[in-house]
Simulated assay, not measured.
Amino acid sequence: MLVTSRSFSSGDLDLAGELEAAGCRIVTGPSTHELDVLRPLLADATAWIAGTGPVSAAHLDAAPGLHLVARYGVGVDAVDLEAAAARGVLVTNTPGANTGAVADHALALVLAALRDVAPGDRGVRAGRWAVQRTRELGTLTVGIVGLGRIGRAVAARLGGFGSTLLGFDPWVPPAELQRLGIEGVELDALAGRSDVISLHAPGEEVVVDEHLLGLVRPHLVLVNTARAALVDEPALAGALRAGRLRCYASDVLGSESGDHANPLLADDLLDRTLFTPHSAAQTVQAVDGMGRGAVDAVLAHLRGDQPPHLVPLPGGRR
């Protein structure tokens, strides 16, 4: 059993113990999935509880005995589903396990950015007690891009503050958005009307580009707890410097290896950016939920049962 999730079995549940009791031998590898490191581990793997790194055709070729990839989380964008289907490898995920954790984190970033929490802390520690007047969340219009589980959970939390909610999701009918208390609008309209935008879209397509940044309000707070690829980072860095928006608060970066060459980590943007280390899903409850889902899939497969939360593979194969 190959495990490449950083947080697997680190919550309240002894999930590693459950696997060992079922006869599994656990080996661990990096969540970034460097093939040279994983190759000798994949050679003997029957199942793989996979972290956030890529699961490519080359990875699967290195694992001739692999039957199951249990994604530790929701997204399967990094998994080559075509290659898995061609090799008869099942793929599962853990939908809903980290919804509450990520929604909470998005709201934390919104409030921290609006109320200048990090710059205020740095100022006090340096002996500066200057006050920056900020705005209350309940008076603002918040645009949510992507109304899946997490986007809806963010909307529910914002409803308690009394914010006006806008939403863009081409897959959700307007009547459904209305039922959720969200005004459905096109993306350009959302950009032009929002004081805060929170990104929860799936996929790797850029959403925040030069065009969209030209439409936003200069006091906009942009929050990203989804994917770094949703944002054109060089364009965003330029827009922040030009004062075209107030702050970017994100749990994801294009490079998460401490590479300070990322344009958003420039020193002159320190007071206009706020980052956390891809930690939105790192609560005890979410870690247990994701681990429980992955282990249940593995144990079901070992019993000869169909694992829960199978991801449809190309060609309708499962």
Rank of each mutant, 00 (worst) to 15 (best):
G181D: 05
A249T: 01
D77H: 05
L38Y: 00
Q178A: 15
L107S: 05
R87T: 04
T4F: 14
V284A: 14
A300E: 01
L90I: 02
L310D: 03
T52S: 15
T32N: 14
D14M: 08
L42D: 04
G29M: 00
D209E: 08
L137I: 14
S194A: 15
G11H: 10
L212P: 05
V110M: 15
T94W: 11
L310M: 08
G159A: 02
T276Q: 09
L230P: 02
L245I: 11
G258R: 13
A78S: 15
A235W: 13
G29L: 01
W48F: 06
A228T: 03
L190F: 06
V55K: 02
D116C: 11
A106Y: 09
R71W: 12
A130G: 14
G258K: 11
L264V: 08
L19M: 12
D267G: 13
R272V: 09
L269F: 02
L137N: 01
L265T: 10
H59V: 01
L299V: 13
V154T: 13
E136M: 14
A21T: 11
A226K: 08
L222T: 02
A297L: 11
V208P: 07
T273Q: 09
T225Q: 08
G123I: 10
L140W: 10
Q282C: 13
G51K: 01
A83I: 00
L187P: 06
A62G: 09
D104H: 13
S257Q: 14
G29S: 05
H211Y: 06
G304R: 01
R87A: 09
H219I: 05
L38D: 04
R128G: 12
S7V: 14
L236A: 10
T225R: 09
V196A: 02
A103V: 04
V185W: 03
L269W: 03
D195G: 06
R246Q: 13
A84Q: 00
A84C: 14
G289E: 01
T139D: 15
V231R: 14
V154A: 00
G73N: 05
D169P: 08
S163N: 07
G192I: 03
L180F: 03
G29I: 04
D195N: 12
V231L: 12
A228M: 03
S9V: 00
V102P: 01
R303T: 02
T52K: 12
L165A: 06
G316M: 06
G127C: 07
V91W: 06
L60P: 01
L222W: 06
P234Y: 04
G17T: 11
D77L: 05
P308T: 07
E204T: 15
T32M: 14
V110D: 06
V27F: 02
D251G: 05
R244E: 09
